[in-house]
């Protein structure tokens, strides 16, 4: 995909200091934000931002468009809810249960899906996720249409009461940063470089001796696990896991978030998630117009704004970039 290539942040020496500056700025924003914006909104946005970053690992660095990521997000939410409510585990362990569960599910679904490429991969992931959805509809554990309600936030490490909004917020921020760090580490590692090589030219990577399916599978599992981490955390925030979390519309939403922000950019999914969550929050009362507006946004993005917001910013800054090939 020619439009999803990641561009290195910067090639000159100020790289490290700039990163530190960005980190400090981000930390400051996250610290001040709950005093300015409704914390639940922030927590939701952070969960979805992490979810979108996990999705972006596959599309941006692996060239794989998963249309079934709700399966991991949603099943992790259920597993976390089950662990916290029915097994009485502490929140950090419950989140871990959800994450590992999503990773295992990702292992199975990934093993099947990576057998196809391109749009087939998208269709296969969509179909397998729909299977998970039907399973969630029928399984007694999930509470069916009513969802799994009353998930306790509990005491972090058995000590810190997460019913305190600020404590919960801090927990979500920590989870978000850990998830992001893991993804970032993966992308920067030799593993991430190989993944990019496979994305750009799979046959060449194979001829160089890389087992491309193994790399793609591993990326899939990692992406699924982090998506699960986001879903599990979301279940604690809202104390609810529901069919919405596993539905294909959720898979579509995460695609849209990443697309708006910029496929394959580091910050794009975060920006896109904030925009979509904000849009949902403000449009909540207009009911089903949300779906139509999301659809229209998809159309506009694909036709006119394929590089996304962050991609567009990069483009403006890198003025040496060539114009897109004429159509």
């Amino acid at each position: 995909m020619n439009t999803t290539k990641t561009r290195p942040l910067s090639r000159h020496n100020g790289r490290l200091s700039r990163r530190i500056a960005i980190f400090i700025l981000a930390a400051a924003v996250l610290a001040i934000a709950p005093y300015v914006v409704y914390p639940v909104f922030l927590m939701k946005a952070l969960c979805f931002a992490l979810f979108a970053c996990a999705f972006n690992l596959l599309i941006g660095y692996g060239g794989l468009l998963s249309f079934g990521h709700a399966a991991f997000f949603g099943s992790a939410a259920y597993l976390c809810g089950y662990a916290a409510r029915d097994l009485g585990l502490t929140p950090e362990l419950s989140v871990l249960v959800g994450t590992v569960g999503a990773g295992l599910l990702g292992y199975v679904i990934g093993a099947i899906a990576i057998r196809r490429h391109g749009i087939y991969f998208a269709m296969v992931t969509l179909a397998l996720a729909q299977m998970v959805y039907f399973f969630a509809v029928q399984a007694p554990l999930t509470g069916g249409e009513n969802g799994m309600q009353g998930i306790p936030r509990g005491f972090l490490f058995g000590i810190i009461d997460l019913n305190n909004t600020m404590a919960m917020y801090a927990f979500v921020v920590a989870v978000f940063l850990i998830g992001l760090a893991v993804l970032h580490r993966a992308v920067e590692s030799p593993f991430g470089q190989t993944l990019k090589a496979i994305r750009d030219n799979e046959n060449r990577a194979i001829s160089l001796g890389y087992d491309s399916n193994r790399y793609k599978h591993l990326a899939f599992v990692l992406s699924a696990a982090i998506a699960g981490l986001a879903g599990a955390t979301k279940a604690l925030v809202f104390q609810l896991a529901s069919l919405t979390d596993v539905h294909w519309t959720m898979s579509g939403e995460v695609v849209l978030m990443t697309l708006i922000g910029g496929l394959g950019t580091t910050l794009g999914p975060v920006v896109g998630a904030i925009i979509i969550v904000a849009m949902q929050t403000y449009l909540a009362e207009s009911g089903s117009w949300v779906t139509a507006i999301q659809g229209a946004t998809f159309i506009v993005c694909v036709l006119m704004f394929r590089e996304g917001i962050v991609g567009a910013v990069w483009k403006l800054r890198a003025n040496e970039r060539l114009p897109e090939p004429r159509e």
Binding site: T291, A296, T297, F298, C301
Partner: peptide
């Protein structure tokens, strides 16, 4: 796929 998905949602 993304474009027709958006159309479907709309």
């Amino acid at each position: 796929l993304l474009l027709t998905f958006g159309t479907a949602l709309l």
